[in-house]
């Protein structure tokens, strides 16, 4: 069901692990629903004053597709300007991996969302004006998270477990 490219990234994920000196972090997902991704970015200005993602890394709790898409999104964003990185979609992530099974498309959304959230947090931290597209997607992600939590609420109530992941 997975392409060779997915398997390759899963076996040898790029840019994996925690980053200590990050500029911003994007946390998406929820352990109760089963997928969590934390994405760290380090941003520096180049000579012309553009914000460049000079380093990126991630920590992921999730399936093969979640790990492969984490790896791929980090490849796609690394070295890009923040504006270019905002434009990365989950379709980009999935197609770079040669496609994902339909039931796994949400894992690629998780990766693209984590990138979006990291950049959103970076803009807030820097006190920058947030571009409309970024803000819109941020709102959308928050809404989806709420829906997911609702979907799993019955399970959570039963076990008395607290959602962890997205703070």
């Amino acid at each position: 069901m997975y392409t060779d490219k997915v398997i390759d990234h899963f076996r040898e994920p790029h840019n994996r692990g925690k980053m200590e000196d990050y500029s911003a972090i994007g946390k998406v997902g929820n352990i109760v629903c089963g997928d969590v991704m934390w994405l760290y970015i380090k941003v520096e200005q180049d000579e012309s004053g553009r914000d460049i993602i000079v380093d990126i890394s991630w920590e992921t709790f999730g399936c093969t597709a979640a790990i492969a898409t984490s790896s791929m999104v980090s490849d796609l964003a690394k070295g890009k300007t923040v504006e270019e990185a905002i434009a990365v979609t989950n379709q980009d992530v999935a197609s770079e991996l040669g496609g994902l099974p339909p039931v796994k498309m949400h894992c690629s959304a998780l990766a693209a969302d984590a990138l979006n959230e990291a950049i959103h947090n970076y803009f807030i931290q820097e006190g920058r004006e947030i571009p409309a597209a970024l803000q819109e997607r941020h709102a959308h992600i928050a809404k989806e998270m709420a829906q997911l939590e609702e979907r799993y609420a019955a399970f959570t109530r039963k076990s008395g477990e607290k959602p962890r992941g997205c703070e």
Partner: peptide
């Protein structure tokens, strides 16, 4: 290996 890349 999997715990090394997990946020938890």
């Amino acid at each position: 290996e999997l715990r090394d890349i997990s946020p938890f």
